[in-house]
């Protein structure tokens, strides 16, 4: 069982990222510049999960034609930008995806 020690290490990393900020980090340690750049972390990391999951098939090949996930994601983006609701974004994407593959 390789995954157990890995789960524990990942747990520690997650814990310490929160602990660092509560117990050790001080306001003075962050210049406005560092804060500005850190605010881009979600924009920099989440697309690395999002894009391959949409544009690649299960074998890792690019899938552009006949890929309902692309249109469903676009619908989710539009709904998300206008509604600003996390839950509406997820359901708009899933509903249009299901509509395209089942109906």
């Amino acid at each position: 069982m390789v995954e157990w020690y890995l789960i524990i290490y990942c747990g520690l990393v997650t814990f310490f990222s929160r602990f660092l900020m509560i117990a050790i980090l001080k306001k003075e340690m962050f210049t406005d510049r560092i804060r500005e750049v850190l605010s881009f972390v979600p924009s920099a990391i989440f697309p690395a999960i999002i894009f391959p999951a949409i544009f690649l098939d299960t074998t890792g090949d690019l899938l552009i034609e006949n890929n309902p996930k692309i249109l469903a994601s676009l619908i989710a983006v539009i709904v998300g930008v206008f509604s600003k609701s996390i839950i509406a974004t997820i359901f708009a994407g899933l509903a249009s995806y299901w509509y395209m593959i089942f109906i």
Binding site: F40, P42, S43, A44, I45, F46, P47, A48, I49, I50, F51, A53, I54, K69, A72, S73, A76, V77, G80, V81, K84, I86, I87, T89, I90, G93, L94, Y97
Partner: peptide, 29 residues
């Protein structure tokens, strides 16, 4: 499993209103 990219998409949807964020999102993706 398609719900996974959708969930993360929902987390950055606010950033899609800002140009620099959009550029960063596209490059990373």
């Amino acid at each position: 499993s398609f719900a996974v990219p959708l969930t993360f998409l929902a987390l950055i949807v606010d950033d899609l209103r800002k140009l620099i964020n959009v550029i960063v999102i596209i490059i990373s993706g």
